[in-house]
């Protein structure tokens, strides 16, 4: 579980800080900065390939039920247990390579004998959706608090700054596993059933609470440097309301760092969510989960290493593609940055 580390954000901070406000970028008549960025991006073949891969993963996540229908299996049925001859008395698949066959493309899950391919497809669906939600939420919170802190300054800035400091000093991995049961226990009485959505919501909640601080700190620094710039001063002198200054003057100049930060954060949240699953505090059975597959894999790898390969390699492909895509987006936004 690699929780968004400040190391990467600092690198972005450098990148973003050296980025000129979009308005003063290379002026080619008739093209908006967005169009420029898109043109640059399209020329970057690595970026396009990565984008296609990432898009593929999202499609798999969205179309999981369709895939299930075409493939003819679902992630819940315990095929290995219902049909003799698939699992041995120790619960491992009898066929080589973790029970891979024309029928079970990625093999069978040891113990329960569920279809690994379906587990993976639906697991990606669960994990990706959590990562997307957390990225959006923590970015929004981080942007709002970061801008507020930087723009208003004074006591507000002090309070938000200290909260950020404390959050960053927390051993965040530890707190993730500590807080998840607490959040749930606070909401559900022990004799009530814990609904699936609650675990889903509390994972999102905890990841968001511990995740917004990095982006907030970054944006605060950006706003601090921007608000003394001439165009902001000018807007203020001409009597623009704070809302106008924030939305019309500051925000357009912040989109670049925000988007870069978000693309960096998403794969990290995928890893963090999977880390929770690995430690046994992620999504619970029977909801398929990418991270929990690692937990199973780590337990059975002595006898069935194939099982570990599928979630592992697919996550590696996804994260590599997403990171390369992130690099391309950064380049497209700011062709001058050196990496």
């Amino acid at each position: 579980m690699t929780f968004p580390s400040s190391a990467t954000t600092d690198a972005v901070a450098d990148a973003a800080a050296s980025a000129e406000p979009a308005g003063s970028g290379p002026a080619i008549v008739g093209r908006s900065p967005g169009q420029l960025m898109w043109r640059r991006f399209r020329r970057d073949r690595t970026g396009v390939v990565s984008a296609v891969i990432v898009l593929g993963f999202f499609l798999v996540a969205i179309l999981a039920p369709v895939i299930s229908m075409l493939y003819g299996k679902d992630p819940y049925s315990t095929y290995g247990q219902d049909r003799p001859g698939l699992l041995n008395p120790y619960g491992y698949p009898i066929a080589p390579n973790g029970g891979m066959s024309g029928e079970f493309w990625f093999g069978l899950e040891p113990g329960l004998g569920r279809d690994v391919f379906m587990q993976l497809v639906y697991g990606i669906r669960t994990s990706l959706s959590i990562a997307v939600i957390v990225t959006v939420l923590s970015t929004i919170i981080g942007v709002v608090l970061g801008i507020t802190s930087g723009y208003i300054g004074g006591k507000t800035d002090y309070v938000i700054g200290r909260v950020i400091d404390t959050l960053l000093a927390f051993p965040s991995q530890l707190f993730l596993i500590v807080f998840l049961p607490v959040v749930e226990a606070a909401i559900v009485l022990p004799e009530e059933e814990t609904p699936t959505w609650l675990r889903y919501v509390s994972i999102c909640l905890v990841l968001t609470v511990l995740g917004w601080a990095t982006i907030a700190r970054l944006l605060r620094a950006q706003v601090l440097s921007l608000r003394t710039r001439e165009f902001v001063e000018a807007a203020r002198v001409t009597g623009a309301s704070p809302g106008r200054v924030v939305f019309k003057e500051l925000l357009p100049n912040l989109w670049t760092p925000i988007i870069i930060q978000a693309t960096l954060a998403l794969p990290l949240y995928v890893g963090a969510e999977a880390g929770l699953g690995f430690l046994g505090v992620g999504m619970t059975e029977p909801t398929p989960d990418w991270g929990r597959m690692f937990q199973v894999g780590a337990n059975v790898y002595h006898s069935d290493v194939t099982y570990l390969i599928f979630p592992g390699v697919s996550m590696l492909i996804f994260v590599v593609a997403f990171n390369l895509l992130g690099d391309s987006i950064r380049d497209a936004f700011d062709p001058k940055t050196k990496r």
Binding site: N88, P89, Y90, Y92, P93, I94, A95, P96, N97, G98, G99, M100, H302, S303, D304, V305, T306, Y307, L308, I309, G312, V313
Partner: peptide
């Protein structure tokens, strides 16, 4: 992963 994986799949037993 694929090459070795099934070998360990407890085939003897």
């Amino acid at each position: 992963g694929c090459a070795k994986g099934g070998g360990g799949g407890a085939p003897d037993t």
